[in-house]
């Protein structure tokens, strides 16, 4: 469904992505793990059309993706950015409305808001509060809800569990699994490697702008180098 083929991206003269190729099939959860600065965020922002690739191509259902976020959004791709990036100056309701910006604001949108509230009931109580006044966990839920409001086919998650208490992080990751069960394909960049690999159908390990390793979630999870580097488990520890 999404094919990223040999994509390189530069920030000034720094190469942030070095001939990266990944693919995402319909209905999958695909996880990208790797340390800070590996290029995970850059890759997601490039898919979204915010970063312009210097070379390589991005294809979505056979169509070449443009480097224009509003155009990409209209193709059914949405995003939960790193550190939420909510509109703090807008209420919870308005943030959700922005998520549904490309749609007609009709009855179906109200139903979708209810779907978001079923997943994150707390948001319903906070509807008229400013997003900036929410707790970190609530903000992450709102960021996910906001993206869901656009009824995306593919949802990109950038570090959704970053900065959250472990219980909240698990809740957020469980929500992602439920979103997938309801038919949305998920591409997930995570530093919380263990959980991200466990729930992934397929996974990529990135390092210094390159794809270092790929395979099914289980395969990558079983890889000794990954275990040592990202999970802190040395061979023979168990």
């Amino acid at each position: 469904m999404l094919t990223v083929d040999n994509v390189s991206v530069f920030y000034g003269r720094v190469r942030a992505l070095d001939r990266v190729s990944i693919s995402v099939n319909q209905g999958e959860i695909v996880s990208i793990i790797g340390p800070n600065g590996a290029g995970k965020s850059t890759l997601l922002w490039t898919v979204m059309g915010v970063n312009r690739p210097a070379s390589g191509s991005l294809r979505w259902r056979g169509e070449r993706l443009r480097s224009a976020p509003d155009w990409v959004a209209a193709r059914g791709i949405s995003m939960v950015p790193e550190r939420r990036r909510l509109f703090d100056n807008l209420t919870v309701r308005e943030n959700l409305l922005i998520g549904a910006y490309l749609r007609k604001w009709d009855l179906s949108m109200r139903q979708d808001m209810e779907t978001v509230f079923r997943l994150f009931p707390i948001l319903k109580e906070r509807l008229d509060q400013y997003a900036g006044t929410l707790s970190g966990g609530e903000q992450q839920m709102l960021a996910i809800g906001r993206a869901m409001m656009g009824r995306p086919t593919l949802l990109l998650f950038d570090e959704p569990s970053l900065g959250l208490a472990p219980a909240l992080a698990s809740e957020v990751l469980r929500a992602i699994q439920r979103i997938r069960e309801e038919g949305t394909t998920c591409l997930l960049a995570e530093q919380n490697a263990f959980k991200a690999l466990e729930m992934a159908d397929r996974a990529y390990v990135m390092n210094t702008g390159r794809v270092a390793l790929q395979g099914s979630g289980k395969e990558v999870l079983a890889n000794p180098e990954v275990r040592a580097a990202y999970l802190g488990i040395k061979a023979g520890d168990e």
Partner: peptide, 24 residues
């Protein structure tokens, strides 16, 4: 209005606003 909301969203974060389909 919807356009008014888009303006307010852009005044906070243009890049993210564009991610949700708002044409800058």
């Amino acid at each position: 209005t919807k356009s008014g909301l888009a303006i307010r969203a852009c005044s906070f974060d243009m890049t993210v606003a564009s991610v949700f389909g708002i044409r800058l």
